[in-house]
């Protein structure tokens, strides 16, 4: 599993690092901590800009993350192998450098440009399975240089996105479904979240005027069978779309809300991109968007 962790210097990024570290302790994922700076400052020759706040913050986050893996004898990120590799230094320059690696990749990166665009580019290039991004509680996110970056990332990401607003141990993972396209990857991601938090799973089908679409009903049946076979306790229920906001507000107090968006936003789905964007913005708790 490859996790891209998008960070800025806000308080919620601290929660993000802690949440990702817990997930990485279980999954031994390849992890990239990414910070984005809108403009590249002038630097002397090849010296990187060390005095940027995001650079210092990323260094702190790196230490905190690795602090979760103190026992190096069983740490996936402890350096186990090294060797010379050709590294692209840009501007047509390749350099053979000594590269140290652990069993799993752990990288810290800074990109320059517009945050949403850079984060999404990184996710595509690195084929991330999950993007984890922080967001402030309340109506307006305060992402540096791109206030609604989490909402925009959720709408356009090629993979699942966990929007972290706080640190908490959910009592239930509540997965809401409004269509019949559910990827194997999203089911697997839920399995890891359920294992991490040792919780039950709730499958929620969205209805309109008490009517559950036949294709959603069938998909829920398949998913339930999948989880029964995996011996994961999954509760099923339905929520009328008119009560969705209230349901999310109520459920998010103790549970982790997960919304199945599928790869494309289809016309007529309850979870349109705009609706999900609004949910991400206004939710008082973390939200997982599944693709």
């Amino acid at each position: 599993m490859r996790i891209l962790v998008a960070l800025d210097t806000n308080r919620y990024s601290q929660y993000v690092v802690n949440e990702v570290a817990k997930l990485a302790m279980n999954t031994w994922a390849d992890v990239t901590l990414l910070g984005v700076e809108s403009r590249k400052p002038a630097s002397n020759g090849t010296q990187p800009p060390r005095n940027l706040p995001i650079v210092r913050k990323l260094q702190e986050f790196r230490e905190e993350f690795l602090g979760y893996f103190k026992d190096e004898s069983v740490s996936p990120y402890a350096i186990k192998r090294w060797g010379y590799e050709l590294v692209d230094r840009g501007k047509g320059l390749l350099e053979e450098m000594c590269v140290c690696k652990g069993m799993k990749d752990f990288r810290v990166r800074i990109r320059f440009g517009q945050p949403t665009k850079q984060i999404l580019t990184e996710a595509v290039e690195e084929q991330s399975d999950l993007i984890v991004v922080g967001c402030s509680k309340g109506e307006q996110c305060t992402w540096e240089q791109d206030r609604n970056a989490p909402e925009k990332i959720v709408k356009a990401a090629p993979c699942s996105v966990l929007v972290v607003k706080e640190e908490k141990k959910p009592t239930k993972i509540v997965c809401c479904l409004d269509h019949d396209s559910v990827s194997q990857e999203s089911l697997e991601l839920i399995n890891q979240m359920v294992t991490l938090h040792q919780t039950d799973l709730a499958l929620v089908g969205l209805t309109e005027s008490e009517h559950l679409r036949e294709e959603v009903d069938q998909k829920m049946k398949q998913i339930l069978q999948y989880y029964t076979a995996q011996k994961i306790k999954a509760w099923v229920s339905v929520v009328d779309v008119s009560l969705l906001d209230k349901f999310i507000a109520d459920t998010a107090e103790k549970g982790l809300i997960a919304l199945w968006m599928g790869h494309k936003s289809l016309i007529g789905k309850f979870f349109s991109q705009d609706r999900v964007g609004k949910l991400v913005r206004s939710a008082q708790s973390s939200v997982l968007i599944l693709r």
């Binding site: 929620v204 099923v236 929520v239 009328d240």
Partner: peptide, 9 residues
């Protein structure tokens, strides 16, 4: 009957 969030059901 699937559990519903609407207690009225």
């Amino acid at each position: 009957i699937l559990a519903s969030f609407d207690e009225g059901d």
